[in-house]
Amino acid sequence: MLITSIAAAQPSGKEILDRIDQNMSAESRYVKSKMIIHGPRTSRTIESETWAAGESAFTEYLAPARERGTKMLKLEDQLWIFSPATDRTIQLSGHLLRQSVMGSDLSYEDMMEDPDLASKYDAVVTGSETVDDRECWIVEMHAKTEDVAYQKRKLWVDRQRFIPLKEELYAKSGQLLKKTELSDIQQHGSRWYPGRIVYKDMLKTGSGTEFIVDEISFDVEIPEYLLSKAALR
């Protein structure tokens, strides 16, 4: 009775973002995932492993053969890619950050985004709606600063689990740039986390990119060298 009445009471936008961050952010995590890119003609599957801690992350691509051994390192606001075929490490900056990651609907800029929403956005609850049979708060977020990829975001947040089930990402001009749908929500200890996220870049043809979490662990020990440039080669 008490739990139901708390869930039904409308929390503030800030409280919702804090609850989302408790679910989605962690001191560190390890993710083994599959990215299924549904292009206009074919679909491709890319497998990778990622170790992340705070604003640093290291990803190694495992498949397909063409991408195997490609490594990506993010240290705060810097991003490097190591290409084994060329034995070159390239630092990405400027417009290269807006390029698609492996042809997916995700850009490198998306990967650079700090997962901590509460520190970057102001939020207001604008309504409620049902998504996938779950009651959701509709939360509109506006960036506190200019240095974020999306100035406006609209979230449909599960009222009970405080996990977004749907999101729309907008440019400063108000143009809708991307849509995401989060599903297969699973419980990992005290947190809820999606097992499948579908990204759709609204400016691209194709049917979007599925991001499937095969394995995930939170608050894991990450060797120090993995989050340094030494890990790239």
Partner: peptide, 16 residues
Amino acid sequence: VTLISSTMYGAMSITN
């Protein structure tokens, strides 16, 4: 020289 371009699938291509 290294050519940084896009593959026909939109992925980044890095080739010497």
